[in-house]
Design a protein around this nucleic acid. Structure first.
Ligand SMILES: [Mn+2]
Ligand SMILES: [Mn+2]
Ligand SMILES: [Zn+2]
Ligand SMILES: [Zn+2]
Lengths: 140, 140
DNA sequence: ACCTTATCTGCATCAATTGCTAATTAGCAA
DNA sequence: TTGCTAATTAGCAATTGATGCAGATAAGGT
């Protein structure tokens, strides 16, 4: 995702308005690698701007996704997560704390059983334990 | 997933009862490679046994999953899909018709960016077009 | 400063799933 | 067979995540 300044220009160019709510979300999302949910973003936004609506958070996230500034991913946590990192990567989910980490794979694996199917995209979700959670279990 | 006959024995052994509803679901799931949702299973069940409750379908699916007889997968279609194929495999989802196909991967890809994370499982979701949908587009 | 149009908020709605409970029934034992 | 008891069912309420809707508001070009 581009910087708040660049997004401001991009939004105006697209005929969209740049509101204080959107500027705040631009800032909260920029360089955010936590893969937040709409709800967690709303919580974070509320501490800075009390009264901001969850509906507006969803709306802005949808706009950003449509502009290709972020992607939404589904890792089985019940709710959608938003990712300003739009590079080609995958995700590792900790079964202990639920945190989502970025993962990069060297090359796409070879497939079997896919006659007559043209693949346009692949997404891998790894599950396991992060370092912190492994340490916790070890000391118990 | 094992056969309806074997499941009958397994359920009894586990202190669970084998009801007509459950037997029907055993049959509908056995060798079913369509990755059905709870709702689609309920529809199929209803044609044979009118009045069977969606709640009962969910309950039985949960029981079977807890016994390891089936797995539930999430491929971004909004609802959970159930898979009596519990072998180690992955899935290809057609963006045209939504159908889910089994995929087998030769070997796990090499990772980067995962220091300090112990992976216990990996699931790959491929997206693209199935043969039928590709053909449709071509003839249009 | 003004005007048009996009946006915001609050609330209703929706879809998938789970919680709850009275009535029913499977399956074991007498 | 019959009876007993715990498991199950069906139906409905509740929950969660997300989207639809509309009147009030405000961005930003003129
Ligand atoms: Mn990511
Ligand atoms: Mn499968
Ligand atoms: Zn963790
Ligand atoms: Zn298809």
């Amino acid at each position: 995702m581009r910087s708040p300044e660049e997004l401001t220009i991009a939004f105006r160019r697209a005929g969209l308005k740049v509101t204080p709510q959107r500027q705040l979300l631009f800032r909260l999302l920029h360089d955010n690698s936590s893969h937040p949910t709409a709800d967690s973003l709303h919580s974070a936004a509320t501490t800075v701007m009390p009264g901001i609506s969850l509906r507006t958070v969803y709306q802005t996230l949808t706009d950003l996704a449509e502009m290709g500034e972020l992607q939404s991913i589904e890792v089985g946590s019940g709710s959608l997560r938003f990712d300003p990192n739009v590079s080609d990567h995958h995700h590792a989910v900790c079964d202990g704390c639920g945190d989502v980490h970025d993962v990069y794979v060297s090359k796409a694996p070879v497939l079997r059983g896919l006659d007559d199917f043209s693949v346009s995209d692949a997404h891998i979700v790894y599950r396991g334990q992060c370092g912190a959670c492994s340490a916790l279990v070890a000391t118990k």
